[in-house]
Design a protein around this nucleic acid. Structure first.
Lengths: 207, 207
DNA sequence: GCTTCTCTCTATCTTAAGAGGGAGCGGGGC
DNA sequence: GCCCCGCTCCCTCTTAAGATAGAGAGAAGC
């Protein structure tokens, strides 16, 4: 057939790109037209080739997946992006999906699932894996952190003291404590260290 | 030639296995004889095929890379094992190498490096990447934690209080504090939360 | 206009964390 | 035998962390 699905692969591991490329090129109805090893290359490759599907790793050097999704959809609102990630707890997944990514995949997914996800996304059909759907529901029930709280959380995770955090954010120590307290309540943690553990598990922060 | 290098691949991501398999099978002098998706399968595959090289991911379900290395070398002291990992800061790398793994690789290594590493290991020559050699030197200079301290660190990372840690390890709170203090000193951290951050960066713990 | 939310700041109080000591006991190496 | 090390326990003291409660300013939505 002449209506091949044109795919661009973006992943920082050559091995993974090879694996995906091998799988894709074996299919009669799809082909890899370009590969990218980091976020900037991914954007450049998209601009140049305008593929039917962009398969995108979330964690990449220079520019992470979230910002690539943002950037590409800004200039090409109809772009079909399939997110690929290692961790299903990753908060970024939901950020990408809500920004307009068409689907997401776990890296440990079997071959068939990967291929059918690419086909689905290429036809503008959203692809939702059951694992992520479940996570999404769980996530709905939990309170979300404000931007300021995420700022504070980031510093807490680095091991900063309240006083240090206050200095860096140009607020009083009392305010820093207020934010930390709010974080503890929302994450259902007793101590800041537990909060970091929970936040990491939920993919709210990347250490 | 008839002296093919027989390779077993162990990685929990089908995509990665595909990529490696494609690369390896393209070479005239090597072939993939089996693949494994977790630690137990890796051991079973080794027993069954006795390959020249076992390419092993450090992080796998059921049984992690370290214990696979241990197990295989126990019964086959001459086994040639090539460790593959995503993170170069991983403490487990050194554990594997000191246990007798012949080489290690980063997953973001280029194709050529991967292939030459496999060839080196198959000839019983150790393969050491420059990145890891540098890390190894850095690591030498730093004080190492005792087993007990690692136990405590694990619990600290989960957000447990000193009192809680004491209860779980059947020691007094004072002793728990002593261990925590030693950890802080060795990791050069001011607070337990910073200690967790440092420990994670060094791959001493996996959250 | 009113409510709601976020961010900011205040104050007090209790408890946990961390600094700085010292010390006994068992095992392994010298 | 002795010494070093890892693990355990003890003490005091200071400071940081966390619980609790209240409140004002500004923005967004109804």
């Amino acid at each position: 057939m002449k209506t091949n699905i044109r795919v661009v692969l973006a992943d920082d591991h050559p091995v993974v790109r090879d694996g995906l490329a091998a799988m894709v090129n074996q299919q009669a109805d799809m082909e890899v037209v370009a590969e990218a090893g980091d976020g900037d290359e991914a954007i450049a490759a998209y601009e140049q080739h305008r593929p039917d599907v962009l398969v995108l790793d979330l964690r990449m050097p220079k520019r992470d997946g979230v910002s690539v999704v943002q950037r590409v959809l800004e200039t090409h609102p109809k772009a079909c992006i399939l997110i690929m990630t290692t961790y299903d707890g990753d908060e970024d997944i939901f950020q990408c999906l809500s920004q307009g990514a068409k689907g997401y995949l776990l890296k440990d997914a079997p071959r068939q699932e990967i291929l059918s996800a690419i086909r689905a996304v290429s036809e503008d059909r959203p692809y939702t894996s059951s694992a992520v759907a479940a996570k999404a529901l769980q996530r709905m029930a939990k309170p979300s952190l404000t931007q300021r709280e995420l700022d504070v959380l980031q510093l807490v995770a680095q091991g900063r003291s309240n006083k240090d955090i206050a200095r860096r954010l140009s607020i009083t120590e009392g305010t820093a404590k207020t934010h930390v307290k709010a974080i503890l309540t929302k994450l259902d943690a007793i101590s800041r260290t537990e909060a970091v553990a929970v936040a990491h598990k939920r993919g709210l922060i990347h250490l």
